[in-house]
Computed example of a mutant assay.
Amino acid sequence: MRNILLLSSDRYKNLNSFDWCASILNDFFAKTKQIALVPYAQVIDGFDEYEKTLKNKINSKIVSIHNDPINILNDSDGILVSGGNLFVLLHRLQKLNLLDILKDKIENSITYAGWGAGASVLSEDIKTCNDLPILYPSNLKALGILKYQIITEYIPQDREYSMKLYEYFKLNQNSSVFALPYGSALKIHNDSALVMGNEGVLKLSEYYEQYFKIGDFIKL
């Protein structure tokens, strides 16, 4: 059973970080005793500093894994993976040998939420990433929990990125992409997803574009 929350970003319009989604996160983690924070996508903020920021937003107990990854993950019934740079996140997860551990816990029903890079890392790989590769992972394979790509912080009017996606689909013709604009969220339970937040989401492929509004259920 999968219990996953994907957020496009912690930011939305002119609101402060997490103002638009704190209630969504708190409802999602309402029954969680301890959340393991995975802050490895962060580049500018220190891990301790970022942990303090999240503690001011989330009601459940939060412990960043950067001091003791394995034990903290094993002691937690929730996982929260921050946004930041997806290349950096994947590089660090690979270096610390945490990909298989995270995948096992997610597949065994742990409550998981992530935004930005923390959402996209559930994809098969990071081929559709639009971040700068400021650290090189050993390969582009990600967690592979979801059998499609997740694009976050998506701007439909961005013609340059639309062209990049066109090139991606030309070489990956059987792929599909869920694109989450700022302010959108997907709450996934098993094989269906509920569109949440302030904006709808899009499903893209080489041949079609499908829009799902807030409140829609999507069969994955």
Rank of each mutant, 00 (worst) to 15 (best):
Q149D: 11
K33T: 06
T53E: 07
K141I: 13
L194T: 03
P156S: 08
L54H: 09
E199D: 01
D216G: 00
N16Y: 15
I79A: 10
T152S: 10
Q94A: 02
I58D: 02
S205E: 00
L7E: 07
A185E: 01
L180Q: 00
K170D: 13
Y161A: 11
I58G: 00
D27A: 14
L102I: 00
Q149M: 09
L86N: 05
N16V: 08
N85S: 12
A193I: 08
G215Y: 05
P69W: 10
C21G: 08
N26A: 02
L143V: 07
D10T: 14
A22V: 00
E51F: 13
F178G: 06
N3S: 14
T32P: 02
K52S: 12
Y168K: 05
I58H: 08
G83C: 07
N56H: 14
D68K: 03
Y208L: 05
D158K: 04
P133A: 09
A22P: 02
L25F: 05
K213Y: 08
E199R: 07
T53I: 14
E206K: 11
F217K: 14
K57L: 06
G114H: 03
L25H: 02
H189M: 12
Y161E: 12
N174M: 13
D131E: 11
Y161H: 09
N26K: 03
E51S: 08
D191A: 11
G116C: 02
N97V: 09
Q34P: 04
A179E: 01
L143R: 06
S8F: 02
N26W: 04
L5F: 04
I150W: 09
G200P: 02
K33S: 12
N108T: 09
L132F: 15
Y154I: 05
C129T: 15
P69N: 13
I145N: 00
E199M: 09
I145T: 12
I72K: 00
C129W: 04
Y154S: 06
F29N: 00
N14R: 14
L25V: 10
G197T: 04
V38G: 11
D191P: 00
R2Q: 05
S120N: 10
I70P: 08
S123T: 06
E153G: 12
